[in-house]
Write a protein that binds this DNA or RNA. Structure first.
Length: 476
DNA sequence: ATGTCC
């Protein structure tokens, strides 16, 4: 995008003044190079979101923002129910509660490398990955509803996780207010055999080395040490979340019309928070959040089992589990007044600063771990929340590198085998059921995640704590 | 993202 289309507030803040139907400004956090490389559609989509009823503050886009369905991916927007605020399925995203968890192994990189090939094979064999992948777990109707109400808490109670994980998961592992009765039977049917599966696209399980520490005090509290290994899992609510999104997108087109909301783009379909469709979506979406939390907890459990086979007695400690596709009710200070807002984060990570009451005691001094997934074969980062992000982005930060090339363009440019071989030469083991998928996820198809996290840090959204590099990647 | 178009 042409930087001249913005009012530059500071080197990392770019503002679109309200024009036409926009009720508030749109604000993008990025450096000039990221703005120049950013999808043209982000300007339009962030402006469109700013026109929706009840929006508070501004429509925000993170440094990794790119074109999405209606709302940009990397978008943050908060709405006030008492001022006609809306909720939008497209503002959450199709993969409800897609997110990242990182687990600490305490294993030195040298020890891991000795068993890397066997470990990769075992992970690939036991972690179902790819489109339509199914696990050995099958849920009947009662179990399904228990899972949708209980999230990771349910998984722990069923023996697929550990009690102490829960305080390291957003919402302590269980999203309150979930309403399984508002989730369609079709959505539940799709999920019946998909618990504990990775899915496809940009989802992965990665064994990573801690390469560099930027903030020694935060790293110490997070338990991150250079030369040790961590495991990061990126996935979401699989078929169930996707079906909830599809069901309600359709319904919200009608709901918006009924409420007299003029949509600049049909993909912004939404419903007033205080409406039947709005309330039902929120209840169903929260059930979708629990599905994703349970899914990542089960995947963590499978991972522990495999690691213990190679490293007897090893305990994988959960650093944190955080979503980047949600709509959550949160208290935020706006113009000196505390307001209850429905905060949509679509491809944006919650990033609570130090001292936030929702953080576990052990993390209060440094702030929330903000887990930034790189693309396959590139670095990932662990950031920590900053107090400044509260007023800048309703306590949100970026979520990953963001695509530079479309899936189609990437598949035209590279072959899957070629990508696997090139990464193997750099000592990175890739296992995937889909060579087409590997080509689409080639490192060159993504922006530089390093530039994204520096921009997030300089903009005051979150600060860098550690850099991770991949050793083994199980790719969906 | 997604039983990648019921």
């Amino acid at each position: 995008m042409d930087p001249a289309r913005f009012t530059q507030v500071d080197p990392f803040t770019w503002r679109i003044e309200p024009t036409g139907a926009m009720r508030v400004p749109a604000i993008i956090y990025a450096d000039e190079a990221l703005i120049q490389g950013m999808d043209e559609k982000v300007h339009l989509q962030a402006s469109n979101v700013a026109s929706l009823p009840g929006i508070v503050g501004a429509s925000y886009a993170m440094p990794d923002a790119h074109w999405g369905y209606g709302f940009p991916i990397g978008g943050v927007a908060a709405f006030d129910a008492d001022h006609g605020g809306i909720v939008s399925a497209g503002g959450v995203g199709f993969d409800i509660s897609c997110g990242v968890r990182t687990m600490l192994t305490g294993i030195p990189v040298e020890d891991l490398k000795r068993v890397a090939h066997g470990l990769a094979q075992a992970l690939y064999r036991d972690i179902p990955a790819g489109v339509g992948s199914e696990s050995t777990i099958s849920l009947d109707d009662i179990e399904m509803d228990d899972m949708l109400r209980g999230g990771a808490r349910w998984a722990v109670d069923r023996g697929w996780g550990e009690e102490r994980d829960l305080e390291r998961i957003e919402e302590n592992g269980r999203m309150a207010g979930a309403r399984p009765e508002f989730v369609s039977n079709r959505a539940k049917e799709r999920q019946r055999r998909e618990m504990g599966t990775l899915g496809s696209g940009n989802h992965y399980l990665e064994v990573q080395a801690i390469d560099e520490i930027y903030d020694p005090e935060a790293a110490r509290i997070f338990g991150l040490q250079v030369g040790e290994v961590v495991v990061t899992i990126h996935c979401g609510s699989r078929g169930l979340g996707h079906q909830i999104g599809s069901d309600f997108l359709l319904e919200m087109v009608g709901a918006a019309k009924e409420a007299g909301i003029i949509l600049p783009d049909k993909e912004l379909a939404c419903a007033p928070i205080n409406s039947d469709a709005g309330r039902r979506y929120i209840g169903a979406m929260r059930a979708g959040i629990n599905c994703a939390l349970a899914n990542r907890e089960i995947l963590g459990h499978f991972t522990r089992r495999i690691f213990r086979h190679f490293f007897p007695g090893n305990e994988l400690m959960l650093l944190f589990d955080v979503s980047h596709n949600t709509c959550k009710v949160e208290e935020h200070e706006v113009d000196g007044r505390l307001r209850s807002l429905h905060v949509h984060r679509k491809g944006a990570t919650r990033a609570l600063g130090p001292g936030h009451p929702d953080l576990p005691d052990a993390l209060k001094a440094v702030g929330q771990p903000v887990l930034i997934g790189g693309s396959m074969g590139t670095n990932s980062y662990v950031l920590a929340g900053l107090a400044t992000s509260e007023e800048k982005s309703f306590s949100s930060a970026c979520h990953g590198a963001g695509r530079a090339l479309s899936r189609h363009a990437a598949a035209k440019q590279w072959g899957g085998r070629q990508v696997v071989e090139e990464l193997a030469r750099r000592g990175i083991i890739i296992c995937s059921p889909s060579m087409r998928g590997v080509a689409e996820e080639a490192p060159g198809a993504y922006k530089d995640v390093g530039a994204v996290v520096v921009a997030a840090e300089k903009a005051g959204l979150a600060r860098r704590v550690a850099k991770l590099s991949p050793l083994v990647c199980i790719k969906g």
